[in-house]
Structure formats: structure tokens, C-alpha cells
Design a protein around this nucleic acid. Structure first.
Lengths: 342, 342
DNA sequence: AATTTTCCCGCAAACGATTGCAGTAACTAT
DNA sequence: ATAGTTACTGCAATCGTTTGCGGGAAAATT
């Protein structure tokens, strides 16, 4: 389909002037006689001229665009961070291109390549589940393309990132469960190679250790965030000879599904089993019982990621910076057991 | 920050050949001696050459990109359709740029303009809540830029769209409530000027009419999908002298919040009030009671939207086509009242 | 040996803008 | 009247590719 777009040249010919004059007139540069300026404006209006961004970008070799890559658009956490990223970028005069990897390493590599070829000026990335080696990211650094990681990062990468203290957050959540009287604690985790999942498990372990509670490996199970996996994880926990009386789930996606599974088995929450989850999605409030969850600073996360990126883009400061934001445990019914005084 | 990218020219100079030869060699065109081809490949590899997509697009005046505009990335329905849109586009060799309007008309206009200036080859749009006149869309048609609307459309626009029969869907849901013994039916709707909301209300009315049930205007209330609005809508309904015994909500976002509000008031669902909602988000299963909801063909919707768009892009067929997809009522606990035989 | 064919490759224009520099006309100052 | 400004505008190169056309050398055909 041939879309007829008018160019600067057509305007120039129509008015019998040069393209440079038209260009300058349209952009409000000085040194243009008012009459010419008006004439140009008029004709541009009539022909509904729209500048070709591609040409513009090519000559200025600047796109004022940043690329954002997330595992899944569908996850409430990511779509929310995206909103704040876009907001912050827009304010700084940048637009964003959003891509998703569907947790696939190959797709991540592809998407990054595409964005780089399209000359985005920087990238904000949350790594895919399947990403276990980081050559593609290191290549970006070598090429001096600004990159910021958020949430799903890697310790191997010495690079700017904005994250939360997952270990501490999980520790606090577990501690809370212990203080509510839980003795046999379980943890429903994500994929085995996912750093943030492992960090949260670590925090879980730390809390057990501090309170001298035993750690049983079979009380920690891994899944892929899907409803099916998560419910299975919960069922398996129930089928153990000595089921847990407190569960930490490292994501609301897992938590909600697990809650569903437990309720299906007629287990009373929080009396039989208390629960704390991660992310504090709005739905936590809606469930019966409402779900205690660790709130992530979504707004800030997006804003800081953009800030870090812009700093790299504009100040050519390649010194990697890590911003660690605070989480907050929001206690609701699912963990509010009555605890006998002693 | 100056990112040093290698160009075709540098390769050419390094090898003492012309840029055209390099270009052809890299793209595997014929008429290139194997040795030159290899040499080019080698040097390109060494210098980590990445073609400049901007330049490419400019000369080919084709970007193989489509733009998608949705009101809010955060809505499960939209992010899900986006996934299937991206999938379908990718398969056809197109990439997608995703934008959100946050329900604002001005932003919609802006985003469209940007995308057009960036020379996307077509647009898939779900209109913003605040969009009440359609000059910006009509302009696209005048300029022969392929456009497809989905979900949030407008009757004023004679243009390709993929939608569902909202009237029929709401009718069936309401009929179901009536068949489960509801006599006083209410409807929690969205913004007043939102077509799909009004269509659903219309279907609601149609069912009342068919079954000779009275329609009270105060039983239909409008909100903006927010938790606060939706809960308020529900509370207002409860405060009526003669509260309803059946509620249709035109979106799960409203439905979940309403359910929460009703439960807060100690109302038994479905015994006191039965409920059916719209969209069949995965969470419907998780609630207590689980929520009956009308399932939208999300996958298909995305796929068909892309198909319609590609048809316009590639076949220059500007004949508007409307694809109406089937919904399905998924009955769960929230509407399963015991109904006495008679 | 002359002609044709095949194989490679380069020149230069094009895509649609921006921009440094130069040039002309009008206006001001001497 | 001449020199010096000032106000505008155009030329041409540039960004990094692609592509039609033409041409020379080698190989094949007569």
C-alpha cells in the first residue's frame, strides 16, 4: 500500500525555494523572513506535512528513544514498572519501545539486537528466566551502549542496576511468619537459575537460621510461576508427612495459585497455614483471606532505572551504579494468626 | 555518549572495495566472488558490524513495523491481546511498537502522530476512554495508513475492526442470571461514553425486556474501572431501598472490586446476590466464590487484528472489514444459585 | 582470433531530512 | 558614493544504506 507522504522537497518546489529554507522555517530557526515562514507553514498545513522521523534520526544520529525489555508483559509487576518507565522517559523527552522475551534467552538476544540496530540510545532490561550467560549484555557494554538492569539482574554483570534487597525482604517476611507462631516453614520458589528467586530463598533460610528453626530441603520447591506448577508445588507440600504451617511464596503469581490449592484442600488460612507472598499486587486485597505480601517500590523502580540510564546517555559516565530500593511488608489476613502470649 | 558503530563504508575502505559490493556481499546477493564475500564476512565479524536499521528503512521506505495503541498496559485483557498481536506480527516478519494512552485523548493523538512519523506501516488501536471524536483516526484513513480497531471501537468509524458481540454476550449473561432465579438485576458499567460499556448495558436491558423484568435506571451505574469507583458503585447499589439480587459487571476489574465490597458487607454470593462479570481473567478461578465471567477470545482477537492489518498493508485493499468473534459464558460459583424447580 | 557470454564489481543517484558555509540584496554608517 | 552590516536564502555535503546501470576482465563459444 503506497502511502503518499509529503516531503520537505515538495513544499520547497511548490514555493520555489530551497529545502534548507523550508527545513529551517518549519523548525522555527532564525534567519527566515516572516513571509516565507508563514508561506511554508501554510503549505505544510495544507499538504499535512509530517516530518520523516527516520530521516531525522539518521542525520542527527540520535533517536531519543530507549528500549525496554521485560520477560512478560502479562505480569502485573512488569506492566506496572513499564508504566512508570514510560512516564519518566516521556518527561525527559524520550520515547520507549517495549519488547518482551517470553522468558526465552534467544528472544532476548534477538530483541536486543533489533533495538540496537534501530539505534535506541539505551536499554532497560529485566532478564529472561532462561538467560544464564551474559555475552549479549557484555557486548553492549563493550559497545558502550548504556544499559540498566532492573529486578531480574545477575551478579556476574558489573553494570548499573536498580533492585531491591530480596534477601532482606524475604528475611523479614519469614521472620514475621515465625513471630506469628509458625514452626515448620516452607518456601515456594521460582525457577532454579533465577537470581531473585534464589535470593529470596536465601533470605528465607537466613531467618530460619536466626531463629534456630530446622531447614528441610523438601520444604523448598521450584516452579515456573505458572498456575499449574504453583498449585502442584502447594499440593506436594501438603502431601508431605509433616506439612508446613507457614509458607513464603516468592511471587504473588505463585502465592495466589497456592492459596487456591490450599483452599481446595480445605486448609484454613492462616490458622492451619499462614502465608506471605511477594509483590503486593492489588489483588492481594481482594482475596479471602486477604494476602500478606511484600510491596515493591514499582514507581520508584521505573523512575530510577530511567534516571540511571539517562545519566549514562547524557553524561557519558560509565561507572556502574547499583540502586537498592526498600521493600515493605504489608501484613494482611493470610498471615495474621492469633499468637498465644507466653 | 558516543557509541562507535562500524559502517559499511569502513569495511569497504578496509578491503579496498566499494560500499555497494559490501552491501551485496553481506546480504548474500549473487554476483559476488566467494573470496570477496568471505573477506567481507570476516571483516564484518571482526568489527562487529551491525546494519543501521534507520538507514535501511529510509532507503527502502519500509519499516516492517506496526504500532499498537492500548489504553493501559496494566489491564490484563490488553496485555494479553498484545502478546498474541506480537506473536502474529512476528510470524509475518513484522515487529511491533507498543504505546499506551492512559485513557487520554491527547495522548492518543500524540502517540499516533509519533508512530506515523516513525513510519510504522499500520496501526492497531483500542480507543482511549476519553476519545469522543475521531478526526485523528479519519486522518489516518485519508492518508491511507492501514488501521484496525479492536475491542474499544466506535460506530462512527467505517474501518476494519475486530470485536465481540457485546450486546449478545451481556444478554446471555443476564439471561443466565435470570434463569438462576434473579428478579432484581443491576449492572455496574464503565464510563458513560465508552461504546463497549454501553453495548453491554444494552444487552443487559434486552434480556430484562425479553423476560418482562422491570428496568430501573438507578440499578445501572457508571464508573471508571478503578477499585475505588467500582466499590462505591457496589455500595451504592446496596444502599438502595430494595437492593438487587443479581449483578452484571461489564469488566472483571469492576467485578472483583464489587465482589470485595459485597463480601465486606457480609453479603452471601451467590445466595443473596448472584454475579456475572466480563473478561474471564485467570483470577476468576481464584476468588471465593469463583467468579462467573464472559470469556473473550483474546488469542484470536490479536491474530485477527494482525491479519486484517496485513491484508491492508500488503493487498492495498481498503475495504473495511468487521470481524465479530464469539464470546463464551463461563459459569462458576458466583452465579450458581440453587434454583427451586417449578 | 574474434565474438559472445558470464562473472564481478564500481559509480552515482536515491531515501528525506539537517547544517556549515557562502552569497546576494538591502540597509546603515561614514 | 563606498564600505560595512544585517537579513535572508541557497548550495552542497552528510547520515548509512540500497540499487540500476554500465563496464572491464576472464571464460566460453564460434
Amino acid at each position: 500500500m503506497k502511502t503518499n507522504t509529503t516531503t520537505i522537497k515538495e513544499i520547497a518546489i511548490l514555493l520555489g525555494i530551497s529545502t534548507s529554507t523550508v527545513s529551517r522555517a518549519l523548525r522555527g530557526l532564525p534567519d527566515i523572513k516572516p513571509e516565507t515562514r508563514n508561506a511554508v507553514a501554510r503549505v505544510a498545513q495544507e499538504l499535512d506535512y509530517q516530518p520523516n522521523q527516520l530521516a531525522k534520526n539518521l542525520v542527527k544520529s540520535s533517536t531519543k528513544t530507549i528500549g525496554v525489555i521485560v520477560p512478560e508483559l502479562n505480569f502485573h509487576f512488569f506492566s506496572s514498572v513499564l508504566i512508570s518507565i514510560e512516564e519518566a522517559a516521556l518527561q525527559a523527552g524520550y520515547s520507549v519501545i517495549i519488547c518482551q522475551t517470553h522468558e526465552s534467552y534467544l528472544r532476548e538476544v534477538n530483541q536486543i539486537e533489533n533495538l540496537v540496530n534501530s539505534r535506541v540510545e539505551g536499554l532497560i532490561i529485566s532478564l529472561a528466566r532462561d538467560t544464564t550467560h551474559y555475552g549479549h549484555i557484555e557486548k553492549l557494554i563493550r559497545k558502550k551502549i548504556p544499559v540498566v538492569l532492573f529486578d531480574r539482574h545477575s551478579e556476574e554483570l558489573n553494570i548499573s542496576k536498580v533492585i531491591v534487597d530480596n534477601i532482606k525482604a524475604a528475611f523479614e517476611a519469614t521472620e514475621h511468619l515465625i513471630q506469628r507462631g509458625c514452626k515448620r516453614l516452607a518456601c515456594l520458589a521460582g525457577p532454579l537459575n533465577l537470581l531473585i528467586s534464589n535470593e529470596r530463598v536465601q533470605g528465607f533460610k537466613n531467618a530460619l537460621e536466626k531463629y534456630n528453626l530446622p531447614f528441610y530441603p523438601e520444604y523448598v520447591s521450584h516452579g515456573d510461576f505458572s498456575k499449574e506448577h504453583s498449585m502442584l508445588q502447594a499440593f506436594n507440600l501438603m502431601n508431605l508427612p509433616n506439612p508446613p504451617d507457614g509458607i513464603l511464596t516468592i511471587s504473588d503469581r505463585i502465592g495466589f495459585a497456592a492459596l487456591h490449592a490450599l483452599k481446595q484442600r480445605g486448609i484454613k488460612i492462616p490458622e492451619d497455614i499462614a502465608m506471605v507472598s511477594f509483590n503486593n499486587e492489588p489483588f492481594c486485597n481482594y482475596f479471602t483471606p486477604s494476602v500478606s505480601s511484600i510491596s515493591q517500590p514499582i514507581q520508584e523502580m521505573g523512575k530510577e532505572a530511567v534516571n540511571l540510564l539517562l545519566k549514562q546517555i547524557e553524561n557519558e559516565s560509565p561507572i556502574p551504579e547499583t540502586i537498592m530500593l526498600k521493600t515493605q511488608l504489608v501484613v494482611r489476613e493470610s498471615s495474621m494468626r492469633k499468637v498465644e502470649e507466653n
